[in-house]
Write a protein that binds this DNA or RNA. Structure first.
Length: 813
DNA sequence: AGAGCGCGGGG
DNA sequence: GTGTACGCGCTCT
């Protein structure tokens, strides 16, 4: 028997001889990777009935036909949990394996009056919560080495204890990126196009680990470039490099959606198994969207973390590697024209070196991103307690939910079930208003200051005890009634959710206290993670798929918030600021003759009066901004604005046209218009520019490339019910003998003629210059992209479209 | 008005 | 996840 100190990072489970074993993967304090196996946690769920002892008898005799086996309960016990503030008697039903829970539960729920709980909680998560294990934090394990096929030593645990004070530092990170053969631009056809090179970037102590593997030889002095015979060997080397580097974390950018799925197809084609799991099994590609999880190695797709969590604090609107890296690291991509890679590969291999550099650079940038964001990711991991590979892929609602689930376990609270399909459907229809307090006054503004009210919501939940178990309590009717709504929340007993969020707020305050005079990165990251979670609570309450969904609670939060915000707004007006726009969490004011200092002073004043930890924050100063009203929407306009920051960046919100299935001409016109208006202040010029483009369209001077629309075929052609333009064009192509396959991008142009849009859609190769329907492009591409912008400035569509060169102020729609 | 569909990220 | 679950805006029906 030995005792080892161990930082677990990843968890999964396996069935052996009918029994369930948990495998914890991580690093020992010695730095060596290891695996802890634990067979001590038996899967279970709960059932509730009028009389649980009767139910217990029934369960004892129950045999259910499962999918692969006859299932029966392993054992049962009667126990208590708190549900909606009340103690409940429950039957705890154990099974040999997690998969046996579902058939048993389904059978039990056919009995009248029987309801099951926690059958929908993931086994590995339940294990971690029950054992109190927080991934990333040290545990002490007593156990013995066992003989098992594995790339790291496996210890069978007999005892475990926690050491929460120690958490993992500097996990070993390896970043990778592939480049593929691609003649068709953005299309991805892994079945046909091979992987040309793969780059790695990591650190060996102080020395960078760099490698690019490719299978076409050329002269080079770069010693990190390694040549192999063919793509098959490249894939084998890919596996070897990972195995030799022994990373805790394997990272990349959009590796869930591109690199790994691509590798999967190519490896299959080459008959190579992608057995990079630490137990030598092959990579398991689940359903799309679930992410690629590697057994024992934490695969972190940095893009996922940024999209789900980190992008909230970013200026950039697009989340491509280049924009993200330049904002976070101040480092862009290498300036290489990737369109040329296939051509150079075929015709001028001697010029491949710059593509290898480019490849390596992407891996390097991704490594740096991962390193930079590691404190934030690890803090979230330690807060939620789940693997980094899962936490980085969770949207805010699931982060919140998993945090609550841990607190629930600690306080003997029974988890609410996930809503069933019908329930979700019903919840979706139950929207509530009250989010927007001040509708944007459409227009172009100078000198805006933006304040943020974010911590208002969590504080309201805590201060007013907003929760499911406190709503309309019997003891406090009529006290502290929610404005406009008439609900009330208990004043006597703290609710479960309010106490959870209170814990988050006070934890954050402690961290902030520690941060005074201490610029520690870890503290900053912890504070950020706590704030993010707390701020997500309100959204969670109103989220249709939430376990602890509470419509009344979500409603109440905004109702209380309106009260606070309205007062702040009138104070701002009193002080001579013009309130331009405000929604639930932010407030935009125009400075007029005031200064930024005045605005900050005003903010301080407000903060003095705010109760508890509520706080108005200064978001920034924006020399110019344009607010656009969304027509065709009742109850006020939605967020749609563009701001010019004092650093000269343009921050666009709500303009959704930067997409591939819009023509180049529409995208560029919108971009140019916003730039000209915000940067140059030249509305007339922008207007004239659009008129000029419209004229050009009409006189057929616009190149076909600029009006081409790209749309991808997302499924086999036969499976389409709705025949959109791209489907119709694909059919045409097929009829003409072109190859048409799932995943291809159909390029087409809308031409003149009669009927539906699709009847006028023609494949690009059949369209000559000038052969497009100008009115379609004007009406369906240019006008939608810019009309709302001009509308707020007093121009209307007529002005844009009319043949006359005269321009003038028109009516609003 | 409702259903069906593509987009994002990646080369 | 012990498997239904992104949200928006377009086009067709």
């Amino acid at each position: 028997m030995e005792e080892i100190r161990f930082y677990p990072l990843d968890i999964n489970y396996k069935i052996q001889e009918g029994k369930t074993y948990v495998y914890l993967y991580g690093r020992r304090d010695s730095g060596k990777r290891a695996c802890i196996k634990d067979g001590s946690f038996i899967p279970y769920f709960f059932a509730e009935a009028g009389d649980v002892t009767v139910l217990q008898e029934i369960v004892r005799g129950l045999k259910v036909e499962g999918r692969y086996e006859v299932v029966r309960a392993l054992k049962t016990e009667i126990t208590e949990r708190i549900y909606r503030g009340k103690v409940r008697n429950l039957l705890k039903i154990y099974t040999n394996t997690p998969k046996q829970i579902s058939p048993l539960r389904k059978e039990l729920e056919t009995f009248p009056g029987v309801k099951c709980y926690e059958h929908d909680v993931k086994y590995t998560h339940n294990y971690l919560r029950e054992k109190g294990i927080i991934l990333g934090r040290q545990i002490k394990v007593k156990g013995e080495l066992v003989n098992e096929r594995s790339k790291v030593p496996v210890w069978m645990a007999s005892e475990m204890s926690l050491d929460e004070s120690e958490s993992i530092k500097d996990p070993r990170i390896l970043s990778f990126d592939i480049e593929t053969y691609n003649k068709e631009g953005k299309v991805m056809i892994p079945e046909r196009n091979p992987i040309l090179m793969v780059a790695f970037y990591g650190m060996d102590g102080e020395v960078p680990f760099k490698k690019v593997i490719t299978w076409k030889k050329f002269e080079t002095k770069k010693n990190y470039i390694e040549f192999v015979e063919d793509e098959g060997i490249l894939i084998k080397r890919f596996k070897q490099v990972i195995e030799e580097y022994k990373p805790d974390i394997l990272t990349g950018y959009f590796t869930d959606g591109f690199d790994f799925p691509y590798l999967e197809v190519r490896a299959k084609k080459q008959r190579i198994s992608l057995d990079i799991n630490l137990d030598y099994s092959s990579l398991n590609f689940g359903k799309e969207g679930t992410g690629v999880l590697i057994r024992g190695i934490s695969h972190v797709d940095i893009f996922q973390f940024i999209r789900n969590v980190y992008s909230k604090g970013l200026e950039t609107n697009t989340l491509d590697l280049n924009s993200v890296a330049s904002e976070i690291l101040n480092e862009g991509k290498k300036d290489v024209d990737l369109d040329n890679l296939a051509k150079v590969w075929d015709e001028k291999p001697e010029e491949l070196e710059e593509f290898c550099e480019y490849n390596l650079h992407d891996a390097y940038v991704t490594y740096e991103l991962c390193l930079k964001l590691m404190p934030e990711m690890l803090e979230l991991v330690k807060l939620i307690g789940l693997p980094i590979s899962e936490v980085t892929r969770m949207p805010f609602s699931r982060l919140v939910e998993n945090y609550i689930l841990r607190r629930a376990k600690e306080t003997n609270v029974l988890a609410a079930n996930r809503p069933a399909y019908d329930e979700i459907k019903e919840r979706r229809t139950k929207t509530y208003k009250g989010a927007y307090v001040v509708e944007p006054k459409p227009g172009l503004y100078d000198n805006l200051v933006v304040f943020d009210f974010r911590s208002l919501y969590p504080t309201i939940i805590a201060a007013h005890n907003v929760g499911l178990d406190t709503l309309r309590c019997e003891c406090c009717e009529g006290k502290d009634v929610v404005p406009e709504l008439g609900y009330w929340y208990c004043k006597e007993k703290k609710g479960f959710l309010p106490s959870v969020i209170e814990g988050l707020i006070s934890r954050r305050l402690r961290v902030k206290e520690m941060m005074k005079g201490n610029k520690d990165e870890l503290l900053k990251a912890r504070s950020m993670a706590l704030k993010y979670l707390a701020n997500s609570f309100y959204g969670y309450l109103g989220f249709f798929a939430a376990r602890w969904y509470c419509w009344e609670c979500a409603q109440s939060v905004t109702a209380y918030a309106r009260d606070y915000i309205q007062r702040t707004m009138s104070k701002a007006e009193e002080r001579g600021f013009e309130v331009v726009y405000g929604d639930t969490d932010s407030l935009f004011v125009k400075l007029n003759d005031k200064s930024v200092e005045d605005a900050k002073e005003f903010m301080e004043e407000i903060n003095i009066d705010l109760p508890g930890q509520m706080e108005l924050e200064y978001e920034g100063f924006f020399p110019k901004g344009i607010f656009v009203a969304l027509k065709s929407r009742e109850g006020g306009a939605k967020k749609k604005y563009a701001l010019l920051s004092d650093k000269g960046d343009i921050k666009i919100t709500g303009f959704e046209f930067v997409r591939r299935n819009w023509s180049e001409i529409a995208k560029s016109v919108q971009e140019r218009v916003l730039n000209q208006i915000l940067r140059e202040g030249d509305v007339e010029g922008a207007f004239d520019y659009v008129k000029k483009i419209i004229k050009k369209l009409r006189s057929k001077e616009v190149e076909i490339d600029k009006v081409m629309i790209h749309t991808q075929l997302q499924k086999p052609l036969e499976e389409y019910d709705a025949i959109g333009p791209h489907v119709k064009v694909a059919r045409d192509m097929l009829a003409k003998g072109y190859e048409v396959r799932e995943g291809m991008v159909v390029e087409y142009v809308i031409c003149e003629g009669k009927g539906l849009v699709r009847d006028r859609a023609k494949m690009i190769s059949e369209v000559k210059e000038g052969d497009y329907d100008a009115e379609y492009y004007i009406g369906h591409q240019i006008i939608p992209a810019v009309s709302s912008i001009f509308a707020v400035l007093g121009y209307n569509e007529e002005d844009l479209v009319s043949e006359s060169s005269q321009k003038g102020l028109g009516d609003f729609f």
